[in-house]
């Protein structure tokens, strides 16, 4: 479903918001969500604390690990360095909404999720939602043609358990299923 852009767009002076909580509408996993947040709050914190979508993980909060990877308007980005308020009018997709756009996903997995399980592409699982959101993005961008390319284009997601060879195997398998 379409998410409307913020209605207020007169001169910037008129539209100054914050620093206290302000009403923000976010389209997340196909649903429009209204929240009251301070402008300084990151998309990651909003997803986890306000919307109880804890699939996106806080690993560093400074753009160095990739555990918070989500999609904004279909592109993989880091939720920790994205202010939530800047996402008004954009479509946010998290791991919870990957299998089905409505975020329910009951029982159904995205092929990438299935292959991550089949290839044992994770151990502790903490970086996994970020890996999967990044992996699907990597395939969609056309950067998964061979292992060398997957290696480079998946290097923004650190897996400290070092499941990397299996992550590549899962991406190859999911890529070949599509």
């Amino acid at each position: 479903m379409a998410v409307r852009t913020p209605e207020a767009s007169p001169g910037p002076e008129a539209a100054e918001r914050g620093p206290g909580p302000v009403k923000v509408r976010l389209g997340v996993n196909g649903r429009e969500r209204g929240i009251d947040i301070e402008p300084r709050v990151s998309l990651l914190e909003v997803l986890r604390a306000e919307l109880d979508l804890t699939g996106a993980k806080r690993g560093c909060d400074q753009g160095t690990c990739g555990a918070c990877t989500v999609w904004v308007d279909g592109r993989r980005v880091l939720a920790c360095l994205t202010l939530a308020i800047t996402c008004e009018g954009r479509e946010v997709t998290t791991i919870e909404g990957l299998a089905r756009p409505d975020g329910t996903g009951d029982g159904q997995l995205h092929p990438m999720q299935e292959e991550f399980i089949a290839q044992d592409a994770f151990q502790c699982g903490y970086c996994t939602p970020g890996q999967i959101m990044s992996a699907v993005g990597c395939v969609q961008e056309g950067h998964a043609t061979d292992d060398a390319e997957i290696k480079e284009w998946m290097s923004g997601n650190i897996c400290r358990c070092a499941a990397y060879p299996h992550i590549r195997a899962a991406i190859r398998a999911a890529r070949d299923r599509v």
Partner: peptide, 12 residues
């Protein structure tokens, strides 16, 4: 396959 695999790949 890991018994907790589904929980980990879905963010649950």
């Amino acid at each position: 396959d890991r018994v907790d695999g589904r929980a980990k790949v879905t963010g649950a």
